[in-house]
Design a protein around this nucleic acid. Structure first.
Lengths: 156, 156
DNA sequence: ACTGTTTAGGTGTCCGTGCAACGTTCTAAG
DNA sequence: CTTAGAACGTTGCACGGACACCTAAACAGT
């Protein structure tokens, strides 16, 4: 597993990985910057709002939410602190489990999300989707599905 | 540019983008963690050492290097501080330009890089390349080339 | 019921990074 | 030669995030 198969292969493959890193970083930065100047919203915050908006009852358990936005639990705690301070989400106790807390999207939060969404989608388009042919997007989707499969099997 | 073309398209495309985010994050985390435990080397540090190793004379101007590792200049300053403290790189004045500084890879640094490289490549393999068919890797390369083209034209 | 274990969430602390401002040096215009 | 402006690298500051640890609640076995 830690063994090296064949050094010679890696020249081009390594480049692919590095290009991927760069491209992803570039798009992310662009997106974050645009959201910040236009709506004073960090990318992570946008993701949280989006996840909540898609969730039933506009609410999600903290732990659950942390997993979806790829953030540590502590990181999410602070982020929700900020969003709550700005009135975009609220914390609500869970009836069935006294330890549990729901993060709930407020109307204000939903409105901010709606405002920011064109910027978000536009950024993804201009920096990512518009540069690829439709068929290529589908190719990417297929590949990513393979990679995502690992999440279920290998990494708990 | 900030206009929304068609809301209906974005359902699947949005998923593709989010999957890409997740996949990239997952691989990066895995890589960083492995490098850290096995060689006490952050991913950013590895990247710096790698860039320097590939550069002529094993040296690169700070500004130049900052661009290659996708780090702000200030961020690079501190990173080089740490690497220098650990003896992996050195700073060297530039003869032709008194403002300029070279970051130079030391022998110690080259050795550490060599030690860590199997871990790095192995991680990329196991988390990324091995999950894709050879043809798919080539497809990715082609697409990334398109995305990278933007770096040259659109973004200064 | 009781005690140990696991889970949910929050807190203390540290580290890495970006932004804005700064000093220094190079370059161009007068 | 002088001076305005740009470029290079560094520093003060604040912020965001992770890790380790903590408390409270749920669950397990006896």
């Amino acid at each position: 597993m830690t063994l090296l198969h064949d050094e010679s292969l890696t020249a081009e493959e390594l480049t692919v990985w590095r290009m991927l890193q760069r491209a992803q970083m570039r798009v992310t930065r662009h997106l974050e910057a645009e959201l910040l100047v236009a709506h004073d919203l960090a990318l992570a915050s946008y993701d949280v709002l989006l996840q909540l908006a898609e969730a039933p009852e506009r609410r999600l358990r903290m732990n659950d939410l942390a997993g979806r936005v790829l953030l540590s639990r502590s990181g999410l705690t602070r982020l929700i602190d900020r969003l709550q301070r700005d009135g975009l989400v609220e914390r609500e106790a869970c009836a069935s489990d006294a330890r549990g807390l729901y993060a709930v999207l407020t109307d204000t939060g939903a409105a901010r999300l709606a405002q920011a969404t064109p910027t978000y989608l536009g950024g993804i388009r201009s920096q990512f989707l518009d540069l690829l042919a439709p068929g290529e997007i589908e190719q990417v989707r297929v590949m990513l599905a393979k990679l995502a499969a690992l999440d279920l099997t290998g990494a708990p």
